[in-house]
């Protein structure tokens, strides 16, 4: 009975990925919450992954500032307007 209720760390981290995309069932939610409450490592995992993915989104914004060189633009114009 207890075994069925308890998630393993492997299952808990798996559910944490799933959770980003779909609503977990109530039983999944409960079991994940209980596991995270008890397990410091999985709690760290979830927190750290959230931090990492918030950076990946911002990294895109930084890359957005990349500029094309004047030569590249000239090359493009030549290819386009022949």
């Amino acid at each position: 009975m207890m075994k069925k209720l308890m998630l393993s760390c492997e299952q808990a981290t798996y559910l944490s990925a799933l959770q980003e995309e779909r609503k977990l069932s109530i039983s999944e939610q409960m079991r994940l919450r209980i596991h995270l409450w008890m397990c410091v490592f999985c709690r760290r995992f979830v927190r750290q992954m959230n931090e990492v993915t918030s950076h990946t989104h911002e990294m895109v914004d930084v890359g957005q500032r990349a500029l094309l060189s004047a030569e590249s633009k000239e090359r493009m114009k030549k290819k386009l307007y022949i």
Partner: peptide, 21 residues
């Protein structure tokens, strides 16, 4: 179309570069 590169190349490039690196 003669203005496309000047108007949009930078914006498009930034979009592509930020994803493809």
């Amino acid at each position: 179309r003669a203005e496309w590169v000047d108007l949009y190349a930078n914006k498009l490039y930034a979009y592509a570069f930020s994803r493809l690196r």
